[in-house]
Design a protein around this nucleic acid. Structure first.
Lengths: 200, 200, 200, 200
DNA sequence: AATGAATGAGACTTCATTCAT
DNA sequence: TATGAATGAAGTCTCATTCAT
């Protein structure tokens, strides 16, 4: 078999196993079995379990950064950008739920345990990119400026994160209709609040 | 030493170790050393590592449920109730940051893996309690009814969760002033949205 | 069983296995089996295979240094001291052939591979101690001064080393008579040379 | 590439790796990398790691035997022969230090383990050849006969071995002057002893 | 002749848990 | 109640060797 094929199969298998059992409970043997390859081969391509995991995560971060970076630079209105972020996350979930699951469960968790300072930096970068967009919205007068930009960011990202968590938890598939409703709900609540119109 | 004392010391130590390294990386030996007790003794009080962890988590959940339960039944206005939830979480963080850290990292992230089906149920219960309060707010006309109650719940809890995550990540202490500002921000955004007033 | 007992048993077993198979071929399982203990216990006392090996070697070096140090300081004549060194080595072989075997085979070998600079230092220390005694002999006029002291040391130690190697190789036991003959031979050749008297 | 070329490259690489890390720590992959060849190719030429090692050692032994054999048969005086042996070893070190390093570390130390009974035989043969020359010296009246011929052999070979060990350890290069001095010292001490002339 | 992907036995090591004291 | 020595299942990883190309 060619090199590229096997490596991809391994990554695919690892993705599945990691997302199902979590990093700690995932066994290299599980991954090998899932990939239908000897586990020796995994070490041919990846130094060890952690490096294999990192490779997967790294890949995810790259895609994510690229998207945010692009959005940040785009000429769209702030609201558009926020919607795009949500869309991107939802699509990512639909396309590769395992990857999203790892992201939500392992990466967020992992960065809390200050084991890897790199992890923290990754997160900060993500936060910062998002915050930049939100701050831009404040400057433009689209978003309220009486609340710190980082606080707004927390609410925004936290909301998305929880939606994803729930979807992952329920192993839910995302119909176009449902995706649309989620995006609308999220946007509406984030922008206009949860309070009933009447009270305004 | 008396029974109660040792048991408490163990729990305290476990709390610290679990919150620092996470469940998977926490070693019974670490806990014993932290507690300055032999690790044989841990097994006097707790059947095994998981039970020890559960004991800690259980304790936390109980406090949380009780609070939510109480809030749910209280006669307060919905807004009050929501503020109380936030307050409760922030206070919990201030009082026992390790417990909060475990909650956020292990429970609110780790529950994704089907390994502990109990975890899921706990979470659903929490969601449900919170959703009940929110649904009540919708019925009462305080909260908008055009968005599913569970969606509103996700945004609300997700926002809190992320605030906590960031605080845990930064190992931040929470001054009264800061707590107040966070509560206000969270409430404001959740209720009135992030959009600039001008646009209304 | 008490702590000290088990640790000693492990060391004893390790000594046997290492001396029989060499470090590389020695299996932790072999040692455990030889000690009639679970291999987990070995790790209770020693961090890993290398540390276990080091502990054994360290112990040997200490005994050896102490002896040489003592000899160096003693008021004996140089010849006496040299005889004592030989005696010490022969006795060490008789008392603990495995230890001697490890010393000759593994330590001498290991120090060639510059893996552990500590190893080199140990050897240098040994050489130096011996050289000090020999230099003292030169100063006193007992040993010829027209040959570098280190060269004399090499011949002296090399000769002993080879005697030991041969004994280990043949798994020989050392009768008092034989020991005496070896000491005499070694001393005679080293001091007076191998040339036939006639030629003097 | 032609057959002979590759085989030679492999042997050369193996020589380097074995001499640097020792047999146990040498990896087939290291050798392949050193040779700039795939490791599959090594197995074209050598059955396995041990055979590869043996091939190298065998080659060395053969040269050595041939030399000793020739010397043994030569009409030279005993002293001449001994000097020739020393010279041969020193030259061998200068010409191929790696080979010498392997010889000293792996063969002359490693033969202790019964793992390779062939090793023992080789050594005995070497000893015997050398002893033959020494015994001849005793018969001729050149060397003292009151000490067992094998004992004399041990001292002689041991001294050389240690000189080599020290040189290998120090990664020393051997100038002609230094070589001469070593040969002289070794010969002098071996023949006339280390005792000061005055005492005779 | 040459490659390097693929294999898998087997080594080391970890660590939750038991148990004699 | 308390200790920590003892256990061994189970995991990670290594690396000589094979084999399809």
């Amino acid at each position: 078999m060619e090199k590229v094929a096997s490596e991809k199969i391994i990554v695919e298998a690892a993705l599945k196993v990691f997302s199902t059992k979590g990093f700690a409970e995932a066994r290299m043997a599980d991954i090998a079995k899932e990939a239908n390859l000897s586990y020796g081969l995994i070490y041919h391509y990846f130094e060890n379990k952690e490096k294999l995991f990192d490779a997967i995560v790294e890949n995810w971060w790259k895609t994510f950064y690229d998207e945010l970076e692009m959005l940040k630079k785009s000429a769209s209105a702030t609201k558009e950008k926020l919607v795009e972020i949500i869309k991107f996350m939802m699509n990512a979930y639909t396309a590769t739920p395992s990857q999203m699951s790892i992201f939500v469960a392992e990466v967020s968790r992992g960065f809390i345990y200050h084991s890897s300072p790199r992890g923290k930096d990754k997160f900060r970068k993500l936060f910062n990119l998002c915050e930049d967009i939100i701050r831009e919205g404040q400057v433009r007068g689209t978003l309220r400026a009486d609340i710190q930009s980082n606080y707004l960011t927390y609410v925004f990202l936290g909301a998305i994160d929880t939606f994803l968590s729930v979807m992952i938890l329920g192993n839910e598939t995302l119909s176009k209709t449902r995706e649309k409703r989620i995006i609308e709900s999220l946007t509406t609540v984030f922008l206009h609040g949860a309070e009933a119109e009447a009270e305004h």
